[in-house]
Amino acid sequence: MTRYHEPALAPNQCGSSIVQVIDAPLPRVWSVIRRFDAPQAYKGFIKSCSLVAGDGGVGSVREVRLISGLPANTSLERLERLDDELKVMVVSNIGGDHKLVNYRSTTTLHDEEGDTIIGCNLKSLARITEKKKKKAVD
């Protein structure tokens, strides 16, 4: 993961990483993620998406219309990288009525690698917080 998620940052930039375990086969998850023309399939804050350049491959540009109530209405994004073998997708924001400047999102998918102490801790954290959520709803 560090190969794709530790980019060199300029003095006025920041970065972050989020890891999510998904209980589904990797090919199924990738088939949803890789659809540059259909982010609304899994991003609930998107009203619509249309390609304004390209066919959905690298170099394509999409205009994303966001649901009302968010701090923006539109986002213009370019697909910088799409690697089906390594399961890597890189998208840059290139315009829109939001405040994101020099924003780039890298998404990678990985098969779960054996349990480590950190992995066990994160799984435990998920179980505990999910139980609390269920108790709060009950």
Rank of each mutant, 00 (worst) to 15 (best):
I118A: 11
K87Q: 12
M89I: 03
F45D: 14
G56A: 01
E113A: 08
G119E: 12
R62H: 04
P11Q: 00
S105G: 03
I117L: 14
D55R: 11
Y4S: 06
K131G: 04
V61M: 04
I22F: 05
P27N: 11
R35I: 02
R35N: 05
L9H: 07
I128Y: 09
L76Q: 13
I94F: 00
G56N: 05
V32D: 05
K133A: 12
D84W: 08
N121R: 13
Q13H: 02
G114C: 13
G54D: 06
L109C: 03
Y4T: 07
P71V: 01
L70H: 11
G15D: 00
V61N: 02
V29I: 14
D23N: 13
P39Y: 01
I46Q: 00
G54W: 13
Y42Q: 05
G69H: 07
S68D: 13
S17M: 14
E80H: 04
H5M: 05
G119Y: 10
H98A: 02
A10R: 15
F36S: 01
L66S: 07
R81I: 12
T2E: 12
L86M: 09
E77Y: 02
V61F: 01
M89K: 12
V21M: 12
A10K: 14
P7F: 00
R78V: 03
K134N: 10
D55E: 07
S50V: 15
E130Q: 15
Q13V: 00
S105A: 09
G96R: 07
N93L: 12
D37I: 07
G57Q: 10
A38V: 08
E77F: 03
F36N: 01
A53Q: 15
L100D: 00
Q40E: 15
F45P: 10
G15R: 03
T116V: 05
H98E: 02
T108F: 00
G15Y: 07
A38P: 06
G54Y: 08
M1K: 15
N102M: 01
M89Y: 01
D111M: 08
S31E: 12
S31N: 07
I18N: 06
T2L: 09
V90M: 02
I33C: 05
P71M: 11
G96T: 07
E80K: 15
Q13A: 04
V64D: 02
I18R: 10
L100V: 09
V61Y: 01
G95E: 09
S17D: 08
K133T: 15
T129G: 02
D83I: 05
G95Y: 07
D111S: 11
K132T: 13
R35D: 13
S75K: 11
D23R: 12
D97K: 03
T129C: 04
T107L: 12
N121D: 08
G119S: 14
V58W: 04
T74C: 09
V58I: 05
I118G: 05
E6S: 08
